[in-house]
Write a protein that binds this DNA or RNA. Sequence first.
DNA 1: CGCTCTGTTGATACTTCTCAACTAGGGTGG
DNA 2: CCACCCTAGTTGAGAAGTATCAACAGAGCG
Lengths: 224, 224
Amino acid sequence: MSPRSASLAPVAAPPSPLAGIEALATPLRRRRGEIVCDGERSAPFLYRVEAGAARRCALSADGRRRIVDLLFPGDFFGFDGEGRAGSSIEALTEGTIVLRYPRREVEALADADPQAARAIREIAFAAIARLETQISLLGRVNAVEKVGAFLLALEERQSAGERAGPRRVTLPVSRCDIGDFLALAPETVSRSFAALERRGAISLSAPRDVAILDRAALRARGQR
Amino acid sequence: MSPRSASLAPVAAPPSPLAGIEALATPLRRRRGEIVCDGERSAPFLYRVEAGAARRCALSADGRRRIVDLLFPGDFFGFDGEGRAGSSIEALTEGTIVLRYPRREVEALADADPQAARAIREIAFAAIARLETQISLLGRVNAVEKVGAFLLALEERQSAGERAGPRRVTLPVSRCDIGDFLALAPETVSRSFAALERRGAISLSAPRDVAILDRAALRARGQR
DNA sequence: CGCTCTGTTGATACTTCTCAACTAGGGTGG
DNA sequence: CCACCCTAGTTGAGAAGTATCAACAGAGCG
């Protein structure tokens, strides 16, 4: 049951090439809401979510918070070594574990070991794919469409983990977080969930517990 | 100078570490509006814009076009080797040159040469930084704010290339393209330009020719 | 119990989209 | 040369969508 991070396909199960890198890891255990790492101090490190979930926040110029990325087991972050000011990582669930890798040593390892270097490239490419998914998600016009695409992406990433359980998503984030992530007001997120349920696309047994009933209806460019 | 521009610097003029990779390049010359490469056939390649500008488009499920990325000299793309269906790259300016690298050979080179591997990592990290900029841009609430941030990002990337010309941006794209990029209607883009000019942030000598007068006013969270 | 936090729902105001008309520039062919 | 068309851009009016403000429900917890 250990979230052995066989996650996204390309990153997927890289036991051997990552072996060398894993030796560099320092685990960070955080409780819900705790900050994993913060701003500039995070610069000389690379990170990877081992268990739980985390959000990466940025403060925009006008002081509004923006969730730039949601992170699940297997996801790496911290590639842009600058550690932009105002950015921070916060744990979303109890018992979140993040692995921290010293950038300098990772680079040295990559220089010495082509297999490790290849693994790091794969990691970076997976991050790129994730960000591109997020971009096309933000480009969707409707709030309902955004939320539907968000749910699909979330289910894909969660189910890529290990559980074979097909069409059930547990939201690790609040409506407010989803709103920050999708550039929507939390009320609008809530209304979108209601609309999706009314449409028969999903079923909400609890606010954070979504059963996906009709994937096509989630994708559809629906009104109401 | 802003710390952000530093992230672009390493990509801008990377002569020596890229030398080995450059030997693998096939140049593609395209005229304005021509397709550089298309969908699945682009999968086994990595690309880099050498001159001109290009846009990366994706077709969303509902058939709407989305511009996922705007590409300028020095920008790489095609990391996600899957070459997602419906995506295509189109040249935006006359005489656009894109370099194409066979992925397999690039990987082989990276395996053989740590310096080349490091260069590729830098390239991927730069792409990540670019995508993150785009995400925080899309998260902005106002249309005017979005357009302002878009102009700032564009100026930063154009001036990072080679021209020292300070605060003048030539838009390589139509209002419609900007709208697709920012998830706005073209009319709204036009109105935002007018608002920014009214505010004194920019000056439009021609629709595609923007002089940046007041950077703070571009960033401001302005109404109207 | 009262408290807080999260989520829901309603009413209203504001932003943006959509449709439409109009202008300016560039090309083409008479 | 001008008429013509085509595209890109601008501007306006109305419709649609979302944000905002507010009230309220339920869960967890002291």
